[in-house]
Each structure stands twice: as structure tokens, then as C-alpha cells.
């Protein structure tokens, strides 16, 4: 089991599994009743195409199922991140 403190993830860079950095972590969405982590909120880099994503106020929602691992970067699966 791998546990992390939420504050340690603040401003972490997000990369797809093909090696492209797409932006910075802005926030994490959770369901407080079940404790489930539902999404991560990405502040996209200017060259990132946000079409096909759930976008709110220039923040992009990525489902947490797409997150492969978190170390120096948050690595997301580029197929799973599209809902």
C-alpha cells in the first residue's frame, strides 16, 4: 500500500504515459462519504489540447482511474484520461 499526504502533491507536474508533460496538479476531487478519490484537477500547459475533457474555468478534470503512479510526476494513462 502506498500512502501520500495530499499537501505533498500540491503543484506536482502531470505527465502522460507516453512522456508528455501536460500541466500541473491544481486539486483533487474526493467523495467524502465513501472516501473514494474521483478526479484530479489539472491546470493545463498552454500547448495542451483540452477538447474531449470535462473543463471548468480552465481547469481540466481527469478521472483518477487514469492515474498510473505518483512519484516525481503524476503519470496518467493517455487513453483512460479521456472519459
Amino acid at each position: 500500500m502506498k500512502t501520500l499526504l495530499a499537501r505533498s502533491l500540491s503543484r506536482k507536474r502531470i505527465m502522460t504515459n507516453d512522456g508528455k508533460v501536460i500541466g500541473t496538479l491544481k486539486n483533487i476531487m474526493v467523495n467524502p462519504d465513501s472516501g473514494q478519490i474521483t478526479d484530479i484537477i489539472l491546470e493545463p500547459d498552454p500547448d495542451f489540447n483540452v477538447s474531449g475533457f470535462e473543463v471548468d474555468n480552465e481547469r481540466v478534470f481527469i478521472p483518477f482511474e487514469a492515474v498510473r503512479d505518483i512519484r516525481d510526476y503524476i503519470v496518467v494513462d493517455r487513453h483512460l484520461m479521456l472519459r
Binding site: M1, K2, T3, L5, Q36, I37, F64, E65, V67
Partner: peptide
């Protein structure tokens, strides 16, 4: 003060 996240289980620990 902080939230402990379980990344593998995708839930709040």
C-alpha cells in the same frame, strides 16, 4: 491538517 491518500486503493486512507 492534511489528508492521507492511498494511491493504489484510490481512496482516502
Amino acid at each position: 491538517e492534511d489528508i492521507v491518500l492511498d494511491i493504489d486503493a484510490k481512496r482516502i486512507d
